[in-house]
């Protein structure tokens, strides 16, 4: 597949969404709502669940399955309230020493007048800063599109795992093409140049693992992913150097020393 074909695959409506992963991998999910400041954002779902017998905090970005749901979830583009809800849940997880698992799928943070009024920038900055400094194990799973700062806000994790056909990019290929090549139709070329595939991310060290999609959405797919996640989370539990290790994980990008 070309890079742009991967972008299209990552955006495909038939792919499992965050809630599918939550219901197939985790048990006893209890959803928590609201940022305790302004409102509840439909694009970000969060709460408590068990991974095997490990209690974890889950934060996912859900695009929605049908038109009505997509509208209520603003097509998976979180508003500031969503990131503030995520921050609240991360802090609660840290208080109770629970690992945090994020499931990311977004074309980017919501762009709108209200989002700007309520400080989209500040909300994303706060989410990145909170997540990167957590003392508990963190794991980010990128299942579809990882659009820029809006995705990074939930991906400042100890490890980032990407589905085989997921993409992670600083800007959408269409946005890049319209700025640089003055033509959104050059998106395919831009996608190639941006190096946004899972293999690229693995090569840069931006991702640690690629999850094969051979049987995407099947019971075997979820059970194998579950056991990998459980193993990873268990290996990080009880350690007291996770925040520093995570700092170094991000420190290495473009390091001069």
């Amino acid at each position: 597949m070309t890079s742009y074909e991967k972008v299209k695959a990552a955006r495909s409506e038939s792919r499992p969404g965050a809630l599918d992963y939550i219901s197939n991998i985790f048990s006893s999910f209890i959803e928590f709502h609201g940022d305790r400041k302004f409102g509840d954002d439909g694009a970000i779902v969060g709460g408590l669940a068990y991974l095997g017998d490990i209690p974890v905090t889950l934060i996912g970005i859900e695009r929605g399955k049908n038109t009505l749901e997509r509208i209520s979830r603003s097509f998976g583009s979180p508003n500031p309230e969503g990131y503030r809800k995520a921050v609240r849940l991360m802090r609660e997880a840290e208080k109770f020493s629970r690992p945090v698992i994020t499931i990311v799928d977004t074309s980017g943070a919501y762009c709108g007048v209200g989002a700007e009024e309520r400080g989209q920038s500040e909300a994303i900055a706060e989410s990145i800063t909170t997540m990167i400094g957590l003392s508990v194990p963190t794991l980010a799973l990128l299942i579809g599109e990882g659009g820029s700062g809006g995705a990074l806000a939930l991906m400042a994790a100890s490890e980032v795992w990407m589905l085989e056909n997921s993409v992670y990019s600083v800007i959408s290929p269409e946005g890049c093409a319209s700025i640089l090549f003055k033509d959104a139709k050059e998106a395919s070329k831009a996608a190639e140049n941006l190096k946004l595939t899972a293999e690229d991310a693995l090569e840069f060290g931006v991702a640690e693992k690629i999850i094969p999609e051979d049987n995407l959405g099947s019971p075997e797919f979820y059970s194998s992913l579950k056991s990998m996640m459980e193993g990873k989370i268990r290996s990080m539990m009880g350690r007291d150097d996770l925040a520093y290790e995570r700092y170094l994980r991000f420190r290495k990008f473009g390091e001069s020393r």
Binding site: A125, I128, T129, I132, G133, S148, G149, L152, A156, Y168, S169, V170, N193, L194, K195, L196, D200, A201, F204, V206, R246, Y247, F250, R251, F253, G254
Partner: peptide, 14 residues
């Protein structure tokens, strides 16, 4: 590309 996106996390960590 992604390496500039990572600078947001790196600087925030610092």
């Amino acid at each position: 590309g992604l390496l500039s996106l990572m600078q947001m996390a790196k600087t925030s960590g610092a």
